[in-house]
Amino acid sequence: MSNFSNYLFKNKHLLLLFFLLPPLLWLSIIYLGSLLVFLFHSFFYLDGFTGKIVYKISLNTIIELFSSAANIDILIRTTILAAFVSIGAAIIGFPIAYYMAKFTSPKMKIFFYLAIMLPLWSSYLVRVYSWKLILAKEGILNWFFSKLHATWILDFILSMPVIGGPSLSISYLGMFLVFTYIWLPFMILPIHASLERVPNSLINASYDLGASKRQTFYKVILPLALPGIAAGSIFTFSLTLGDYIIPYIIGTSKFFIGQAVYTHQGVAGNIPLAAAFSLVPIAIMTIYIYVAKKLGAFNAL
């Protein structure tokens, strides 16, 4: 046994292979294998008469995806929502990240860190559920507005086109709130990481050279936080693109990419179209990550 281990130690490559083989085999056979087989279905198509999958390579399904106005609507709607969620998360997340990176004592920092990690790792479903309680007609948000005698503000917002709806729990605004809430920690952590790397002396230098607080923020701090925001938006954007549970529970009856994938593979049995739909977020994210990499987002991770 000891001889064997010595042999391994002396043959670094063999040792590497010995370590790498189990996880590599697991991931390539179980994961990558099934993933590629599924995605490859987008080159097959569903026979209109029999409802069976035709295993012939063609672009029929891809063409079907992009030639239907309803499908294009789904893609655009999901992308716009993902963009708004990313912007919303950046706006809410930035002050927390900035405060945490530059103004906290070590002890407070641990508190903030935990305050962000706990929601991040705690149950996704429970957190979605909590918003069902909040947005309900008899829930806390409506109670709060009525106590302030400001129900008219809420009614006004809900009467607005597109974002409004019959109630907060069946509106794009509600969905936006829930998505922003759920993915917020993914935005805070990378921004914090990028801001923590900005030396205080740099900020002092900006003040010393006569810049005002405002100028320092916009010309020094914000540009240096951009890679962090870009990195965070990779998460918020991609997670929103692929989610189907929040639109299902909070949303309107209008479909999003995740729901389209779910419906086509399930009830309709149209795996080719589901696969074609799945290719879209993957394609968008590949381009997005490429651009973010150019902006230096990966140094902030």
Partner: peptide, 17 residues
Amino acid sequence: LPIALPGIITGISLRSA
């Protein structure tokens, strides 16, 4: 990748496999 791609894609892939 398994965590980076949307769960629904991972889920359906494994299911059909």
